[in-house]
Simulated assay, not measured.
Amino acid sequence: PAAPVDPNAPAGPAAEAACAPQPSTEVGVTDTEVRIGSIGTISGAIAGFGTTGRNAMTAYFEMINAQGGVCGRQLRLVTGDDGLDAGRNRSETQRLAAEVIGFAGGVTVVDNGGADILAGTNIPDVSLAIGVNRGLLPNNFSPNPIDPSQPGNGTIAVMQYFASQGVTSAAVIWPAQADARLRGQAFVHDLNQAGIADVQTFEVQITETNYGPVAQQIANAGTQLVLTALEVSGMARLAQAFQQVGYTPQVPFYGAQAYGQQFIELAGAAAEGTTIAVTFSIFEDAPNVPAMQQFVEWYGRVAPGNNPDFFAIMSWASADMIVDAVRAAGPAPTRDAMIAYLQTLTEYTGDGFLAPRNPAGKVTGNCFAIVGVRNGQWQRIEPAAGFLNC
């Protein structure tokens, strides 16, 4: 978590103890708590998709509450489940907008559903913003921003790195869902901009289980790099399909969302050799990155036995950002004060938890690290610490 606004003030529990809550009439604020909303996909066609994100939000709030909360108030997470339905996302957003001071986390590909509810309001939205319309909102400050002024996914630097390794061909696979389709097509743009012009594209059903035909077509073409907008079980099935057809892409990227133990468990031996670019510290960095050590410790307390992943990392960062905004808003927090703070957030790392990014300007930046599955475990490939291209 970021330090209090006053650099000379005591940090952590001492700082919170020195700040007494003042009366507030703001939505989601009582004398004893601050309510923050989060809507994810817990049920539906990809049930559990948002579970790790919710766990991470819960873990972060419990850590802060154990330190005394924020200015004498405890944090309370108020959740909604959209069931992978944009209409439900909209209705849940409308319901929670009357109960919470702001939104954070929110692992769902249908968050565009709630975009019009938040449009034109002063409700702070630090949700992940997977949907394009959600990310365009001036009051959205995603921890994983995608520049709305650009047609790609902000991954040109990553694709240039792989082009420098001799990659000239790629395949992009996405599920038949509007926002996932846009993300997949945006990867094609970034590949082309990096000079990788030979790109195959495939659209599959959301619940696809047989990736054999796709893997065979990629193998027949001898495609070097494989990238997807799939969720982790789809990525694992694709990796297994490559193993079954006897083909190993030069760069089995799949996507940053592959990172985590779940992919290794689902893909088994087929996970070996996976190589991805990430814009965050990995769990294996915990001994050297205190912010990651906090995450690993508290996530394990809240969800023992559950494997955190990319979405847990981004949701923890989202929680950190919105709690910093509540803290900066003072003893009587308001939505306006939180927005004012978030608009200053032009370089955020979460104390090394993430590579530098500009949530206020909606730009992730060009820093990344290459990590991969080697000998059945995730490990850093390059650099040994920190990030490339910074």
Rank of each mutant, 00 (worst) to 15 (best):
F353V: 06
A45T: 03
N306Y: 12
A219D: 10
A303V: 11
T349Q: 05
D351K: 06
N366E: 15
I64P: 00
A303T: 08
F253A: 04
P7L: 07
Y299H: 14
I381E: 12
A56T: 10
Q185C: 03
E33Q: 13
N306G: 05
A385P: 01
A45Y: 03
T346M: 02
R88K: 14
L230M: 04
W316S: 07
V27P: 06
L238P: 08
L342A: 09
G68Y: 01
A270C: 03
A14D: 14
R237S: 10
V167A: 08
D285H: 10
N140I: 02
G212I: 10
L238E: 10
R90H: 13
A360L: 06
F368K: 06
I146V: 14
L77V: 05
A277K: 03
A215F: 10
D351Y: 09
A15W: 07
A115I: 05
I264F: 04
A20H: 14
G83P: 10
T41L: 04
Q160I: 02
G72M: 12
S169K: 02
I64S: 02
Q293M: 10
T346S: 15
F103A: 04
M338I: 13
L118N: 02
N192Q: 15
Q293T: 12
R73K: 15
E33S: 13
P151M: 07
N210M: 02
S281H: 03
D116G: 00
R95G: 02
D336K: 04
A317T: 02
V100L: 08
Q205S: 13
D116A: 07
A291M: 05
R181P: 00
T274A: 14
Y341A: 12
L128C: 00
Y211W: 12
Y254D: 06
I313S: 06
A317C: 01
L182R: 02
C367R: 05
A271Q: 07
P145G: 09
A45N: 06
Q150S: 14
A9Y: 07
T344C: 08
T209L: 09
V188P: 04
A157C: 12
S24D: 08
G80E: 01
W174H: 05
N133D: 14
V214R: 01
A325Y: 03
L96T: 01
P383N: 08
R335N: 07
V107R: 01
V371W: 03
A129Q: 00
A9T: 08
T279D: 14
P10H: 11
V326T: 07
K362W: 11
Y60A: 11
I339V: 14
I156R: 15
P4M: 12
A3G: 04
A277N: 08
Y341V: 09
R35T: 05
P333G: 10
G48K: 10
E16P: 01
T79L: 05
G105I: 09
E231F: 13
P333E: 10
M321A: 06
E231R: 04
P249D: 09
I39G: 03
G12S: 10
I218N: 01
Q150D: 15
M159S: 13
D336G: 12
G69H: 04
F103R: 06
A9P: 08
A56W: 04
N192E: 11
A186P: 03
T108K: 00
G195S: 15
Q217K: 11
S315T: 15
R301M: 14
A171H: 04
F295N: 08
D85F: 05
Q294C: 03
